[in-house]
Nucleic acid binder design. Structure first.
Lengths: 148, 148
DNA sequence: ATTTATCAATTACATTTGTAAACGGAGGCG
DNA sequence: CGCCTCCGTTTACAAATGTAATTGATAAAT
């Protein structure tokens, strides 16, 4: 809930922007040149396009630039984890509370997780189980709800 | 991956459209009038706006209409589950494979799950554990990757 | 000093999205 | 038989997004 003062507009990262951000996050800090080269190994975007995206990300408050020498060094202002967490939760908010479990199931089923990851999740689930409600109510519509 | 012939553009559902879809899914089938009334209890959208969204959803192949009497009855062409699953996976594709476990952890931590949900997830995890790799490699960049 | 190579900034433009008013056809009412 | 009402269709328009060329500033090379 980040104290409302969400200066940085996470959750408004567009698909293209995610691609840039991913590289920036991975490299921690990067020059446009470097970024452009890396991105062009994946995408058919022109240099110009990538620069535009970079500037938009700066305007959105997701990146900062620091002039070093004569080129700019870009750094993320939000962490990859924060961005992902916020986006994921936002996505799940679209879904009936009742159906979140099933979606999660499907998601997990299709992801590759390490043994360590799985163990941590198991731990978490075990803990949650102790306080979990027997039923999660549907929150689709005010009154009637035909959720199975 | 759904035989490429993705006629129906899931994954291109906009936030506003999700709101309509959620109601349609819940009601299975619905008249615009009904939908408009339900939506207006939540959003400040004009009738016109909602109608526009409805038509766009039809064009996108997410809804169909069937004329009954003189008004139209709208029905979803994709299931809520499919839409969510596809969207969720798409979102996770934005993320380094190595960090998916952590994101999942955070997500689960913040969701309310029923006891039954949790048990199913536990079952799934137990199964997955038997074939899980010790490590999941980072897939951020071609060569070097500074994922911690 | 000129030319050239680099960058970033400005400008551009089609498409999508958010939002909505205006138009047009068909029953229902008087 | 006209008029009103409902509903879907057309049209509208600003903002965001995808994509990119052009311009301008500056440093490097000759």
């Amino acid at each position: 809930m980040a104290t409302t003062e969400t200066q940085t507009k996470i959750g408004e990262i567009t698909p293209s922007e995610w691609e840039l951000m991913r590289i920036v996050w991975t490299k921690q800090t990067i020059y446009s040149r470097e970024l452009i080269e890396l991105l062009q190994q994946k995408r058919e975007w022109s240099e110009s396009t990538i620069k535009t995206l970079l500037r938009r990300l700066v305007k959105k408050g997701l990146l900062t630039t620091e002039k070093e020498d004569r080129r700019f060094k870009y750094t993320a202002l939000v962490s990859e984890a924060d961005a992902m967490n916020e986006t994921t939760q936002q996505l799940f908010d679209h879904l009936c509370a009742m159906k979140q479990g099933a979606t999660l199931y499907h998601l997990i089923d299709h992801l590759t997780l390490s043994q360590a990851d799985i163990k941590q999740l198991q731990q978490l689930l075990a803990t949650k189980l102790t306080t979990a409600p027997a039923q999660v109510a549907c929150d689709c519509l005010p009154d009637e709800c035909h959720c199975d």
